[in-house]
Amino acid sequence: MINYTLKCANDHRFDSWFQSADAYEKLHKAGMVVCAICGNGDIAKAMMAPRVRPARNAAAKRPDTEQAAQAPADRPLSAPASPTEQALADIRRKVQENSDYVGKDFASEARAMHEGTAPERSIYGEAKLDEAKALIEDGVPVAPLPFNIGRKTN
């Protein structure tokens, strides 16, 4: 896997993971890489600094002030960095507050509600790509969420 920092023609910057450099090139040439913020398809790799890990003995000697300089002091790391991140956080909170998490049973639960064998309610969960495609082809109203769900545990 490789992580690229990308930017669009509107100067929005975002990170994205790709299976390889070749995979990025194929997706980019096919027009399948778009801005995560505005949807613009005019994407280029942004200048990135390589992530080089220091030797163990050098890492132990590194002053804490260097780590502190990497994070903006005016906001906590958990706070959204932009209005877009804040909007995504708000959507996530609303989905979690107003829907039932059904995990990997999402496809079967959505189908059962569509067929009338289960009570209708707002649900969210996880589905494999082929399961999601089958739901859409069968007219079951589903949509991907614009954030990672993360697994809920007991």
Rank of each mutant, 00 (worst) to 15 (best):
Pro80Gly: 04
Asp90Met: 04
Ser99Arg: 02
Lys152Cys: 00
Ala112Arg: 08
Met47Gly: 10
Tyr4Gln: 07
Tyr24Glu: 08
Lys61Ile: 12
Asn148Gln: 00
Ala87Leu: 04
Pro54Gln: 09
Tyr4Ala: 06
Tyr4Thr: 03
Ile149Ala: 12
Ile149Met: 07
Thr84His: 10
Ala118Met: 13
Ser122Cys: 03
Arg111Pro: 01
Lys7Arg: 10
Asp74Asn: 12
Ala30His: 07
Asp74Ile: 10
Arg13Ile: 09
Ala81Ile: 06
Lys133His: 05
Arg151Gln: 08
Pro146Trp: 01
Glu120Lys: 09
Ala46Asn: 10
Ser78Met: 09
Ala44Cys: 05
Gly39Ile: 13
Lys61Tyr: 09
Ala107Ser: 14
Ala59Cys: 11
Ala71Ile: 15
Tyr24Ser: 01
Asp100Leu: 12
Ala60Glu: 13
Glu120Val: 00
Arg62Asp: 02
Lys152Glu: 12
Asp105Lys: 02
Asn57Asp: 07
Glu85Gly: 15
Asp15Phe: 06
Gly139Asp: 02
Tyr101Leu: 05
Ala23Thr: 07
Leu88Met: 05
Leu77Thr: 10
Ala132Gln: 13
Ala36Lys: 15
Gly116Asn: 13
Glu25Pro: 02
Asp74Pro: 01
Ala79Glu: 13
Pro83Val: 05
Pro119Lys: 13
Val33Asp: 03
Thr65Gln: 03
Asn40Val: 01
Gly150Pro: 14
Pro141Asp: 12
Thr5Phe: 08
Ala46Glu: 15
His28Phe: 06
Pro83Leu: 12
Ser20Gly: 14
Gln70Lys: 08
Lys128Trp: 02
Asp11Ser: 02
Asp100Trp: 05
Asp11Asn: 04
Ser20Glu: 12
Arg93Gln: 14
Arg13Leu: 13
Cys38Asp: 14
Glu120Phe: 00
Pro72His: 04
Arg92Trp: 05
Tyr4Ser: 01
Leu88Glu: 04
Ser78Glu: 11
Pro63His: 04
Pro80Thr: 01
Asn3Leu: 14
Ala36Phe: 11
Met32Ile: 03
Asp105Arg: 08
